[in-house]
């Protein structure tokens, strides 16, 4: 329409280009519509079944628990109060109770420790792989990736077989005559730590490898030429290049470790609860959905902080190499 009102009638060229521009815009709009149409099944499914439930959890955390699971539609902040305080049923007074706080703290601690543990093994491994010739590199990557695709439950079960009282470690140590009584390995925080490292180690290796793959070894050579030691090369040349991968790897180990359910359930026994188990219990036997919802939200908040750290330190593009 605007093409007809073109102010210069002398040549038709500007009008033509204007018309062309409009036509192109129309085509682009059509394409855009098609693209949203193509996206809609996936997006709708995820929004309705993946994101909508999170808002339900938010609402539920401010309600009262139902008698047989579920919720009663009465506003209440008890779920959050319950975190720190215990309500005395007779006197209706609140006393400070750190039990849940301790579970959260233990979870954060275990997740952090397992992140450090994976880092100590994962970084040298990733560096070693990145310095192999390309043909060997692929094999190594395959071997590191494969456990990630095998069932986590089964891998944790395999860890049980190693750590049990009559497990492989104890049997070997007793055969060697080093111990008479089996060591208590399983159902401890240590077992959960080992299980978490074992579970998420590939998550640490892969992103660090991806970062190190870009390392230009001429820089390393230059550093050695300038009399750097191996330690200095590691600290001043290799680590800065690896940093985005290091941060990504740490997040990828920390986040699932924090919300872990299977590992503490099988290796931690009843005494070493983590947040994940506590949430599951609230939706199962003890049936306090609002409290479970509140715990889920607090867990999500911690994860969000971790993700923000990631965006802050790894997401940003760096000006120089």
């Amino acid at each position: 329409m605007a093409a007809e009102t073109a102010s210069v009638p002398a040549t038709s060229a500007p009008a033509e280009t204007e018309r062309l521009r409009l036509a192109k815009a129309a085509i682009r709009r059509g394409k855009l519509r098609t693209r949203w149409l193509l996206l809609s099944p996936a997006l709708l499914t995820i929004v309705l079944v993946g994101l909508l439930p999170l808002s339900i959890i938010l609402v539920y955390s401010f309600l009262e628990p139902g008698t047989y699971g579920g919720v009663r539609w009465v506003f209440s902040t008890d779920a959050y109060v319950q975190f720190l305080f215990e309500r005395d049923l007779f006197e209706d007074t609140l006393t400070f109770n750190p039990a849940y706080l301790e579970i959260f703290w233990r979870s954060v601690e275990l997740a952090l420790l397992s992140t450090v543990g994976s880092l100590l093994i994962g970084f040298p491994t990733a560096y070693f792989i990145a310095t192999r010739p390309p043909s060997r590199r692929n094999l190594w990557l395959f071997l590191i990736t494969l456990p990630f695709w095998t069932n986590l439950l089964i891998r944790t079960f395999a860890m049980m077989l190693i750590l049990r009282d009559e497990g492989v470690i104890n049997i070997i140590l007793m055969k060697l005559g080093l111990i008479d009584q089996p060591l208590v390995l399983i159902y401890t925080d240590g077992a959960v730590f080992l299980g978490l490292v074992y579970s998420y180690l590939p998550f640490m290796v892969l992103p660090i490898y991806a970062a190190l793959e870009k390392l230009d070894f001429r820089l390393v050579e230059a550093a050695y030429d300038l009399y750097a030691t191996r330690g200095k090369v590691l600290r001043h040349v290799i680590l800065p290049v690896a940093k985005p991968g290091l941060v990504a790897g740490c997040i990828l180990v920390f986040v699932p470790g924090l919300g872990a359910y299977i590992t503490p359930e099988l290796l931690g026994g009843g005494k070493s609860l983590m947040i994940g188990n506590m949430i599951a219990i609230q939706f199962g036997n003890s049936r306090n959905w609002p409290f479970g919802s509140a715990a889920s939200l607090i867990l999500m908040a911690i994860v969000l902080v971790a993700l923000l750290v990631y965006v802050r330190y790894a997401g940003r593009r760096r000006g120089h190499g």
């Binding site: 993946g50 439930p53 999170l54 986040v255 924090l258 919300g259 359910y261 609230q282 867990l299």
Partner: peptide, 13 residues
């Protein structure tokens, strides 16, 4: 999102 959170949220829905 931690899987346990997705799990209980989906259960609630």
């Amino acid at each position: 999102i931690p899987e346990i959170v997705t799990a209980v949220a989906t259960l609630a829905l």
